[in-house]
Structure formats: structure tokens, C-alpha cells
Simulated scan of single mutants.
Amino acid sequence: MPEVVFLHPDLGIGGAERAVIDAALALKSKGHSVHFVTAHHDKSHCFQETKDGTLTVTSVGDWLPRHIFGHAHALCAYIRMIYAAIFLVFFSSLKFDVVFCDQISACIPVLRWSRAKILFYCHFPDMLLTARHTFLKKIYRAPIDWLEEKTTGMADCILVNSQFTAKIFKETFRSLHDVSPTVLYPIPDFSSFNLPSDPIDVDLIPTGTSTVFLSINRYERKKNLGLAISAFAKLKKQLPVSKKIHLIMAGGYDDRVLENKEHYLELNRLAQQLDVKESVTFLRSFTDSQKRMLLNHSTCLLYTPDREHFGIVPIEAMYMKCPVIAVKSGGPLETVVDGDTGYLCEQEPDSFAEAMKKFVDDVSLKDRLGKAGRKRVEEKFSFNAFTKQLNETVHNLLR
């Protein structure tokens, strides 16, 4: 069977990391040999499969800087990924037929020195993820943006995570007009979700709470998490004091990332200003069992990012029969069916609060929409279909 190496910049606990881990599990289930090479892997801050031996990981180049005095994060990330590729091709003893790389394409010219086929998974064009407010920033990003487009086109196969990303790919990489990326939805392995759920944790969900709203996302400003708190505050003002509602803000958090620390404090201050601090629980990172418990016992999920590339969390929530309220843009347009598995709203507190109130007024809504969500995931977003498509892609590459 083919041997596949996954080359990833930072094997933490984000959505991109979950996607490549599930891809590795999918190929491993088909008999492929899989191995991760990454610039950073902290066993105290990673997914279970990368620390319990399910997936083997080699970390190289973590001594290289992540930034230069708080700047040049992209340049440093590119250097770290290129260094990892140099190690893989010229110095490692690993055998590989296919390299699955994602997020940073700058390593592809190095990988082409090997005989392996190169599969690049584009979560979203990196050049669109950074603002260019100053002339110096534009000058700094120009060669990086050029390199991203040029090297992306050097992959033997390009996959994207949604129809939305495929459209953005074509609009952004103008020189790759003859390249048509294939959509491979990053569907998680739901086997862990089938395990028995833990009892309600009263430290997270207070006793007597009638309606529980849940947000799961990294503590990053682009995730628009303030929308969930603002909408919750508006809803709370509309309800009598006897209605006990609660909001749980569960987010990926990394002490090394300054934005995580800053935004966590910003959201706490927002909850204080809106006078809902006592009704909001902030959870920094969480275990798999906590995630199952939260999805199982929450009334619905609030998914706030605008123009999200795909969004794995809504899929996980629907599988757990937890309806989703999401911003009406990007990936959720492909996953959430408005009025059937949840609600698609404008990214405004009033719009979200209106949808949230439906679950307070009608206690049967969670069950009805939850069952429809589970059915949609099983029919449209199965891990078996994801595994089959990825396995065929690898075999077609080698032919």
C-alpha cells in the first residue's frame, strides 16, 4: 500500500489540524502507512490521536522563530515549513510515495526534489487571511503572495474544503485559471462521538438552566465570537428573570498565541459590559469528552464566523443532534439547511437573537431540528464517503 507523509506547519488543535488528522485516519483505515512531519507538536496541546500513538509524528525546526519581534509571522511560517520539507526530502529516513501538505504551499518546490506525488489541500488562500493596512505591509506581502500562487500550481493535485473555497480559489489565483481544484469536504471521524456522553458538568452548565447556547471556536477575532455574546445579551433582555438561559464560550486557546490571550480577555470584558457575565461560561480548550458532553446537552450551537471556508463544528453539532445557528455565508450555506437543521442569519445580534428565541419559546424545536441535522450528516457528509474519495485520489495520483 502507498506510504503517505502529512507535512503540516503546526499540529495544534485548530480546524485545519483536525482536518488533516481525519484525512490521515481515513487513509490509515484503508491500509496506507501514514506519518506526520511538522514544525511544532506539543503533546499537552494537541489532538488525542497524535499523542496516544494512533498517528506517529516527527517534529523538526521548532527552534526556528515564529515571529520577529512580533512581526513577520507569515515569513517565519514559510521558513519553518520549507525547513521541514528539506528535512523530509534530504535528511529523514522516511519512505513516502505521496506528500499531503496543506496551508503553506511554499514547501512544494523542495518536495519536488523527491519522486513522491504532491497533494496540496487548500483550506483557503493565505493571501486573503491578512489585511494590508499599510504600504509597508503591502510591500512585505507582495513576494509572499506571489510565491503562494506560484507554488500552489506546482502540486500534482489540489483539493479544497468546499464549493465556496473552490470559487474563491478561482477568483484569487488568476494565473491558475486552467486548474480546477476538487472539493473534498473535511468530514471528521464520528466514532468518538458515539461513545457514551459524560453527565452534565455543573461547573459549565448551571443546575436549573432551561436553554443552553454553545459556541465552539478558537479565541481569534476573525471568528466573530463577540456576536454570540451580544446576541445572547439581547435575548436575555427580552425574557423574564424566571427563564434561566446560559451561554458557553468554548474555544481553542494557546498560551503561545498573543491574540488568544487578548481576545479571551476582550470577550470577558464584553460580557461584563453587557451585564451577562454571570450567565456566560468561558472555557479555554477542552477535552474530547467535554466536547461530547457540551454538544449532547446544549440546546443549539452558535456559529459566528463570516465567510467561513467550510466549518467542521456545525457538522459535528448536527451529528450530535444539536441544531446550528450560523452566519449566512461561506461553508454553512452548504451544510446547514435554514429552518430544517438550524437557522442561517445575518451577522447581527438582532438576527441571531431572533433565531435563538425560537428555541426558548418552543422546547420541541431542538429535538425536531436535531434529528433532521443528524439525518443530513449521515446522508451528505459521511466519513465513509470522505475516506473513499481521498483513497481514490491517492491511488489516481500514483497511477
Rank of each mutant, 00 (worst) to 15 (best):
E149H: 07
E149Q: 15
E149Y: 12
E149L: 12
E149A: 13
K150Q: 11
K150G: 04
K150M: 10
K150F: 13
T151L: 14
T152D: 06
T152E: 14
G153A: 12
G153Q: 12
M154T: 06
M154I: 06
M154S: 06
A155W: 13
A155T: 05
A155R: 06
A155E: 09
D156N: 13
D156A: 04
D156T: 04
C157I: 04
C157Q: 14
C157V: 07
C157P: 10
C157D: 09
I158Q: 08
I158R: 03
I158H: 03
I158C: 11
I158W: 08
I158F: 09
L159C: 09
L159W: 13
L159D: 14
L159Y: 14
L159S: 08
L159P: 15
V160I: 07
V160M: 03
V160Y: 02
V160S: 11
V160H: 10
V160T: 10
V160N: 06
V160D: 10
V160Q: 08
V160W: 01
N161Y: 02
N161F: 01
N161S: 07
N161R: 14
N161K: 13
N161V: 02
S162A: 09
S162E: 07
S162Y: 02
S162V: 01
S162N: 15
S162F: 00
S162D: 14
Q163C: 05
Q163Y: 06
Q163G: 11
Q163L: 04
F164D: 00
F164Y: 11
F164M: 01
T165Q: 01
T165H: 00
T165A: 01
T165D: 01
T165F: 00
T165Y: 00
A166H: 04
A166Y: 00
A166F: 00
A166V: 01
K167Q: 11
K167H: 12
K167V: 04
K167D: 13
K167S: 14
K167N: 10
K167E: 12
K167P: 12
I168K: 00
I168E: 02
F169R: 00
F169M: 04
F169N: 00
F169K: 00
F169Y: 12
F169C: 05
K170E: 07
K170L: 08
K170A: 14
K170P: 12
E171N: 15
E171P: 08
E171D: 15
E171A: 14
T172N: 14
T172S: 14
T172F: 14
T172W: 15
T172K: 12
T172M: 13
T172Q: 13
T172D: 11
F173Y: 15
F173Q: 02
F173R: 00
F173C: 06
R174G: 03
R174F: 08
R174L: 09
R174D: 08
R174N: 07
S175C: 04
S175A: 07
S175I: 05
S175T: 11
S175K: 04
L176G: 02
L176P: 01
L176D: 09
L176F: 09
H177G: 09
H177V: 02
H177C: 05
H177Y: 12
H177W: 09
D178W: 13
D178P: 05
D178F: 10
D178L: 08
D178V: 03
V179R: 06
V179A: 07
V179K: 08
S180E: 14
S180A: 06
S180I: 05
S180F: 07
P181L: 02
P181I: 02
P181W: 02
P181S: 04
P181G: 03
P181T: 03
